[in-house]
Design a protein around this nucleic acid. Structure first.
Lengths: 328, 328
DNA sequence: ACAAGCGATGACAACGTTGTCGGATGGCGG
DNA sequence: CCGCCATCCGACAACGTTGTCATCGCTTGT
C-alpha cells in the first residue's frame, strides 16, 4: 500500500480511501491510485484490515468428521451457501472421529478468530470451549450434541427414525430384526438404537440382544455380524443399518448371499433406488440440516441471544420395496 | 494479552515469551502467566501474529466446483490431509461452475493471504491471477488446466480414458456407441470426447455425430438424449457417459427401460459394483489426484521453482460386466 | 476584502502481536 | 568493594490497515 501511495504520489490514507470506496476523493486522484494499484497488483490485506477495524474476520469454522463422507460434504456445501449469503468464507477440517484432533482443530479455528463455529463433535468433553462461549463466540453443534456444555444444537430425529424403521418392518410381518449400529459412543448411533428398541416395544417385536451390534464399521466386522444374525436357527429376516457407511458395507456383504433380508438403512444414499431390490431408508434432508445450523449461527451473529436452541429435524421413511419383503 | 500481562503483573513481552515457549522466563513467572491465561481464557490472535511476523497465514484456499459432489469432496479431503501434515488449514469454497464466482472467491482467498491456491477452474480466463503468480503465490490447477496462463496443473488422462472406454466396448462387439458428455466448454468433457473419437478411429467404429451430446446434465435432457440414441432404427447398443453425474442420471433413466445398453461411465462411484448389472467405469484415484496436487503446492511453498509442471494421473478401466454385454 | 464553509488530502495513532535492544538484578571472582 | 557476566524482564517499534482529526486551498455570501 505504501508503494501504491508513493507511485500515485498520494498518502497512505488516500489509497485507503480509494480502496474502500470512500467519498471525497478527487476523480483524477482516484484514477491515479487505481492505476498504481493495477500496475503493482496490489490487494488489500484483509488480516490487517480486520485487525485495525476490530471487525470480524469474515470466516466461520466448520468441523465435521470427514468431508469425504457424502453426508458431511452435502452439509458443508449447505453451510458454505448460507455463509456466502452472509459474506463469510468457510474454514473446513475433518476430525476423523478423534476427540483430540477435534479439540486441536477447533482451538486453531479460535486462534484464527473465526466469527462462529459449526461442529460435528467427535468427543464428549467440550469444556475447552467454555472461554470462547463466554466471550460470545457462537457455536452450533450439528448432528450430535455437545458432551458437557449447553449450546445450540441441531439434530435429526434419530429416535423417531429408529421407531419408524421397526414399525415399517413389523407392518410387513417381520418379527426377527437385527440392528447394525456404529460405535455406541456416537450419539446418533445410540439414539437410533434407542429408537429401534422402542419401536420393537411398540410393535410387539422381541428385542434380541444377539441381533444387535454396535461398533465402528469395517467390512470384516460386518461380514461376521451378518453371519451371526443370519446363519442361525432363528435368523433375522430384516436388518436395520445405523448409517450410510454401514448400509453400504452390509449391502456389499449381502450381495454374496442368495437370500437377502429386508433392509432399512439410516441416511439416504445415491442410487439406493436403483439397487435390486431398492433399499428403503430413514432419510433426512441433509442440506436443510446444514442450512438450519448455519442460519442459527448467523442469527446468533446478528445478535440473537435467546437461550440455547435444540432443533430436531424430522426424518422420513422412504419405502422403496426392500423393507416390504415378506419374511420367508 | 494486555489483560493477561496486567493480571500476571508482567509486561506484554513476557506474556508473548510464555505463549511462544521462548527460553529465559523464570518458572514462577511462567506459572503466573499461564494462570492468568487460563483464568482469562486468552487465545493468541493468529492474525496479528502473522501480520507482525510477516509470516504466512498458514492457510491454503481450495476452490472446487461443488464440495457436495463426491468427486470434489474426496479431493478436498485428500488436500486437507496433506495440508494438515504441513500445518496448514483449508479455506474451501464452491464456484458452482460460474467463472465470475470463481474469480470473486479466488480473489477473496488472495486478500486473506492464503499461502497457496488449489483451483478447479470454471472459467477460461485467469489473467486476474497474474499479479499473484508474479508475487510468488503458488497456484495449482486441478482436474482442468488454466485458460490462458501457464501454471502447475494436475489432470487425469481423460483422452486415454475415452480411448479405453471405446476399445473395451468394441472388443465386446459394439459398433454403435453413444457418448453423453457435459458442456463442451468444460475441459474434461471435451477431452473425453476427443478420446472417444480417437477410440472409435482405432477400433474401426464409425463416429456418429447423432449419437453424441455435449451439454450440462439434467434429468429431462438426459431422457431426451437417450430416446434419440436408443429409439431409432440403428440404435446405440452401448453408452459412454462423461462423468459421475451423467452416469447416475443415465442409469436412473435407463431403469425405466426394458433393455439396457452396455454402459461405461467416467468416474467411479459408490455402489457401481452392486447395481444390476454392475457398471463398468473409467476410474481414477481421486484421493491421489488431490494428494498429488497438494504436494506439488507444498513443494512450491518449500521453494521448488522449477518450470510449471503438468502432471497427468492415470485412469483405469474397471470392467464390471455391463460393458461386456453383447449387443443384441 | 474577509469570514465561513466546503472539498480534498495528509499526519498520526491504534488494532494485537513479536523482534530488537537495553536495563535491572544478583552471583561470583579478583 | 569493584567489575563482569548471566539471567530475567520491559520499552519500543513495526507489521498493513483504517478512524480521527487537522490542514490546506478555494469558493461563496455579505
Amino acid at each position: 500500500m505504501n508503494d501504491v501511495a508513493r507511485l500515485a504520489g498520494v498518502s497512505l490514507k488516500t489509497v485507503s480511501r480509494v480502496v474502500n470506496g470512500e467519498a471525497g476523493v478527487h476523480p483524477s486522484t482516484t484514477g491515479r491510485v487505481l492505476g498504481a494499484i493495477d500496475q503493482l497488483g496490489f490487494r488489500r490485506n484483509l488480516g490487517a484490515r480486520n485487525l485495525r477495524r476490530g471487525s470480524s474476520t469474515g470466516t466461520i469454522g466448520v468441523l465435521t468428521e470427514d468431508v469425504a463422507n457424502p453426508f458431511y460434504s452435502v452439509l458443508t456445501r449447505a453451510v458454505e451457501e448460507v455463509a456466502r449469503q452472509h459474506g463469510r468464507q468457510v474454514l473446513s477440517a475433518s476430525s476423523d472421529e478423534d476427540p483430540d484432533r477435534e479439540r486441536e482443530l477447533v482451538l486453531e479455528f479460535c486462534s484464527r478468530r473465526v466469527d462462529g463455529l459449526l461442529v460435528v463433535p467427535a468427543g464428549l468433553r467440550h469444556g475447552y470451549l467454555v472461554p470462547e462461549l463466554h466471550a460470545g463466540l457462537p457455536v452450533v453443534f450439528v448432528d450430535r450434541p455437545a458432551g458437557d456444555i449447553v449450546a445450540d444444537t441441531v439434530l435429526v430425529d434419530n429416535l423417531g427414525g429408529g421407531v419408524e424403521a421397526v414399525l415399517h418392518l413389523a407392518r410387513h410381518g417381520h418379527r426377527r430384526i437385527a440392528f447394525l449400529g456404529d460405535a455406541p459412543t456416537i450419539f446418533t448411533a445410540s439414539e437410533r438404537l434407542r429408537g429401534f428398541r422402542e419401536g420393537c416395544a411398540r410393535a410387539g417385536v422381541r428385542f434380541d440382544e444377539e441381533l444387535v451390534t454396535m461398533r465402528a464399521p469395517d467390512p470384516l466386522g460386518i461380514a461376521h455380524v451378518l453371519r451371526t444374525a443370519l446363519d442361525r436357527p432363528d435368523p433375522a429376516t430384516a436388518l436395520v443399518t445405523g448409517n450410510n457407511r454401514i448400509t453400504v458395507l452390509a449391502l456389499r456383504e449381502l450381495a454374496h448371499r442368495s437370500r437377502r433380508p429386508a433392509v432399512v438403512g439410516f441416511d439416504d444414499f445415491e442410487l439406493a433406488d436403483l439397487l435390486d431390490p431398492p433399499v428403503s431408508v430413514i432419510s433426512h434432508d441433509t442440506s436443510a440440516l446444514g442450512k438450519a445450523a448455519a442460519e442459527l449461527l448467523f442469527a446468533r451473529l446478528a445478535g440473537d441471544d435467546s437461550p440455547p436452541h435444540r432443533v430436531i429435524m424430522p426424518v422420513r421413511l422412504t419405502a422403496r420395496g426392500s423393507g416390504e419383503t415378506r419374511p420367508s
